Amino acid sequence: MSEEKLFGVQRRERLMGELRRHGAIRVREFAGLLGVSELTVRRDIAALAAQNLLTKVHGGATLPTDLGPATQIRRRGTGPPRFTIGMVVPSLDYYWPAIVSGARSAAAAQDVQVQLRGSTYDWAEDQRQITRLIESQQVQGLLLAPNLDGDDVGEMIQWIGDLPVPVVLVERHPPRWTPTKRQLEWVRSDHALGLEIAVRHLHEHGHRSIGLVLSKGSPTSMHLERGWELVCAELGISPDLIIRESIRMVEPGYRETIAQLLERCRAAGTTALVVHSDPDAMSIAQYCTERGITIPDDLAIVAYDDEVARLAEPAMTAIRPPKPMVGRTAVELMVARLIEGNRRPAQRILVTPELIIRDSSIPLRVR
């Protein structure tokens, strides 16, 4: 085998490794990672798709899903799925599609069907969708992401624990002790660690006064705030500059909120922000551009979510929760539970986010 062909094989092995780890890749980012052209990566994707090892999508590739040609070819002429799992998520647009994609990839690999239901961040709607799946008598397990905010969390957990099929919570963390007949299993991103990764990245590049912006009402905020307190204590950073307001451009009065935030940054000598989520970080960046504040020289920003952070100007450094892996792990956890039954110990799994460095946290001359 020639060196050129050998390098191609190694490159494709690396590509498949990234897919298994994340559930999806983007052509532009993978080409930058390997230092090859985007055309080379597209050719690799086309070759692997021809072998039914991945599914081509616009701008990248995913592991095979129930909607992809690889799954259709694999299942042609086979019998019914081994298990059917119901999945209820609070949104079918922002954040959750990557988790659903990861779940479907794992399900396809294990001959499992996923019945997806969209809900809202409302417990009554969660109950309605869960009840519909149970009453269909077609599902042997449930992957759920219910709203666990409010004073009636105990009642909600009790109701979930009494369901007649096993449950794995996805991106949700119930109280440590739950008075149910079986301890609930869950898998979620380790958001507290993700926040720590962001702060330590900024600290390593000389920032000693850092602020945190949390999305108001997000289930993730609780974990981010916990990570903020821990890392600030360890690094000797003041945790005082923290705001809990959504400041994306669709929010009324967002410009006034950003102006107040930047005034606090100026008064405190703050040179960097961690912002949840991407639209909020992009709002701040756009406002800074209007005011002649240069990013990252005057103010460094790290976004938390990495859904659309790459589209900002400048492109946003971001913490990327391992969304496809969370979905995959949830399905694998459920399948193991269905196979092994009650003799299998309950598991609670945290998956580590990763830092994607772009232009908003390190000046190009430094990079």
Rank of each mutant, 00 (worst) to 15 (best):
A109S: 14
V302I: 11
S136L: 10
D359F: 08
L163F: 03
I210G: 08
R132K: 14
V153T: 12
L33W: 09
L19A: 09
L33R: 13
G211A: 13
R291C: 12
S119H: 01
M282L: 10
S2W: 00
A285Y: 03
S119Q: 02
S91M: 04
P363K: 07
I197F: 01
N342L: 08
E171Y: 04
G35T: 06
E290S: 11
I134R: 08
T40C: 03
I73T: 06
P363Q: 03
S277L: 04
L262N: 06
R343W: 02
C265S: 10
A318T: 12
R344S: 00
C265G: 04
E354H: 12
Y287W: 15
H203N: 13
P321D: 06
L67N: 05
R82G: 03
V27P: 02
L39Q: 11
A315L: 03
H201G: 08
R226E: 13
I258V: 15
G59Y: 12
A31R: 11
R12P: 02
G194S: 01
G236W: 07
T62N: 14
Q137C: 08
Q158F: 10
A303E: 04
H58G: 03
V153E: 11
L148R: 07
R20G: 03
L338K: 06
A109G: 07
R226D: 12
R104M: 13
N147Y: 11
P279T: 02
R42A: 02
E4P: 00
A281T: 04
V366F: 01
G292N: 08
M334F: 06
D280V: 00
H173F: 14
P175K: 12
A107R: 10
V302T: 07
I301N: 11
G206K: 06
L53Y: 01
R76D: 03
A124G: 02
K5A: 14
I247V: 14
V100L: 13
A145K: 03
G292W: 11
R117D: 01
G77V: 11
N342E: 14
P90T: 00
M282K: 06
N52F: 13
M16L: 15
I242L: 15
V41H: 09
V351Q: 07
I301L: 13
R21Q: 07
H223N: 03
D298A: 05
P146G: 06
L262I: 01
I237F: 13
R43H: 13
V36S: 01
G253I: 01
I210P: 09
H58Y: 12
V57I: 15
V366M: 08
P239Y: 08
D122L: 09
E155Y: 05
R75E: 11
L6V: 13
P345Q: 04
R26W: 09
R264F: 01
S105R: 09
R226H: 08
Q140I: 04
S119R: 05
L116A: 00
D190K: 02
A145S: 15
I243N: 06
S360R: 11
G341Y: 05
I242Y: 02
F7G: 01
G17P: 02
L53S: 14
